[in-house]
Design a protein around this nucleic acid. Structure first.
Lengths: 335, 335
DNA sequence: CTGAAAGCGCTTACAG
DNA sequence: CTGAAAGCGCTTACAG
């Protein structure tokens, strides 16, 4: 019904040239006010809107940015996307979403698309598999194509690009220090992601905060049963008084085993985890968590990318930004 | 560095015309095998890839589809997106993501973008605000522009388009029937989304399944404290033996209050909820939940849209598909 | 088998 | 003030 009208058709209806219509619509001072009015009136009547594909071709850009997400089921990334999308909308940019599912293979395919001219810029969090394989060639290829790119969240590897993330190490260092300051002596840590960059950093922060003479109690494995046994050992045999959990899975395991062995949270065991707010606060008892402000991270990543695309950042110098985390106290750290 | 090479440049390097290069690259039978080889070799050397924006302009399409998501923090929608994206990738389509945040205003803006020619098709789940305001004009406008569109998940309103969703009513009807078959007499329901389409349907299913003489125990409110009081009444005063929860929030409240009033799950109280798998199975005790297969829903929505875009569906007839849900038994329904 | 021309829908320097 | 022409990067019917 309302099949899209083009400049050419408007021009014919108005008995003027296409150029005149285009200029009138773009408020060019070259065109007489009277003509501008006529043109705009008819354009409004027909609800004319320029074909974005044509405009983009003309401008040699695509008007879109590509966002690569390792795992959209992880609420953290979903929220990051939300922040990105909100900012993009304001800037009139379209967000093309690619989900790598933590796969190197998939990530390579995605990068292939990204470098083919579909997008004007890229926001990417590197997949787990890529980190494990230490195969970053495809990431470098984005740079070779001179496509502006910002790495978000998973930033701990050496590549000369703009980055934005949180300080994983510091967050757990501070959490550990807080427990120590409250007089907790035996602090344990559980992790199902110790092999990943973020996992390593969180564990490092914990270890850094431990005082001389304090024992290190770590249960870490990506294999379920090994992790279960490790946690059980810490809770039952080592009788730790607090547990830090680097990820959702390990937090839920600690939670569950505390229940099974009748260890009361927070009376017998304090807990702090990297969980998303929604889950953390709704649990019974609620679990104190590290707030990472993912939407803010997404927003700022987008801002950084926009600046880079507009050439507002110094070419040879890369930005590196840190979003501060915040320890939110809920029931599991009641003292 | 690796600045993109164009057909024109390839042509110049090869001393042939642009048309010849284009045809050779597209394996046109018009071109001699020798030329094809020469062209392809040089193209490969320079890693030539056609500018997608130009190709799209030529083909009068955009190569993208728009996906409108009401709330990406809801894991259900995140998973739907995952299914959509996977399928789109296979079809060589780009997914532009728009997040309405359950806002009518935002949804209108988004639809405005969608009808301006950015996308070849649309997948949309209508926002809560839109449903409340019963203001569907903008949705109809997508139809006026003759853009293929598939409604997913929130499909219970009258509009002549393709739809795909789950049978909310049936899912809770069956869940209720199951409890009845196990001899549970006093079955309660908690809802924080009774005012929404899906909430209404779930409640309706519950009511439909109740046998003659069975009392209806419903605690429903979008106001936190009212809902808390309602649930408390059901658990403590009415002493229901089971609770159905239409949403994550109400499930967590029931969970919490059972804990506070020392009501044991599943011994004293059975529970079934609309939760996502991840949370449901990790809770202690784990909560039996209705599996909605969101990725499958996303995938099939995309398939339906592709068929519509390709004209493989009958123009005057709309598809309406239902994804079957499945009650997954975990600890909270242990009998 | 190859190439010139037209065209997708727009914008913009240039003539008049 | 208006319009013809060139061009963004491609494809394809048409001539040769």
């Amino acid at each position: 019904m309302k099949t899209k009208i083009t400049l050419k058709e408007l021009a014919k209806l108005l008995n003027v040239s296409v150029s005149t219509v285009s200029k009138a619509l773009n408020d060019s001072p070259e065109i007489s006010p009277k003509t501008v009015e006529r043109v705009k009136e008819l354009a409004a009547l027909h609800k004319y809107r320029p074909n974005p594909v044509a405009v983009n071709l003309k401008n040699s850009k695509s008007g879109t940015i590509g966002v690569v997400i390792p795992n959209i089921s992880n609420n953290f990334f979903a929220q990051v996307l939300s922040g990105i999308e909100a900012k993009a909308q304001k800037e009139g940019l379209q967000v093309i979403t690619y989900i790598s599912n933590e796969s190197l293979e998939r990530e390579k395919q995605i990068v292939d698309m990204l470098t083919s001219g579909f997008v004007d810029g890229v926001l990417i969090a590197i997949s787990e598999a890529t980190h494990r394989a230490r195969n970053y060639d495809h990431i470098f290829s984005i740079l070779e194509y001179e496509i502006p790119v910002v790495l978000y969240d998973r930033t701990n590897f050496d590549i000369p690009v703009d980055k934005i993330g949180i300080d994983d190490e510091k967050s757990f260092e501070e959490a550990t220090q807080l427990l120590i300051s409250k007089g907790v002596k035996k602090i344990g840590l559980a992790s199902g992601i110790h092999h990943l960059g973020v996992g390593k950093l969180r564990i490092k922060g914990y270890e850094k905060a431990l005082l001389e003479g304090m024992e290190r109690f770590v249960a870490a494995s990506s294999r379920h049963q090994v992790l279960v046994d490790g946690i059980k050992d810490l809770l039952v045999n080592k009788k730790v008084e607090a547990m830090l959990c680097t990820d959702f899975g390990s937090a839920m395991l600690v939670y569950r085993m505390a229940y099974e062995f009748n260890i009361k949270i927070p009376q017998d065991l304090k807990m702090i985890g990297f969980l998303n707010k929604d889950v953390a606060q709704y649990l019974t008892p609620s679990i104190s968590f590290i707030e990472q402000f993912p939407e803010e991270l997404g927003k700022q990543a987008m801002e950084m990318l926009i600046k880079r695309m507009k050439g507002q950042l110094i070419p040879e110098k890369n930005s590196h930004k840190i979003i501060n985390t915040e320890l939110v106290h809920l029931e599991s750290t009641g003292f």
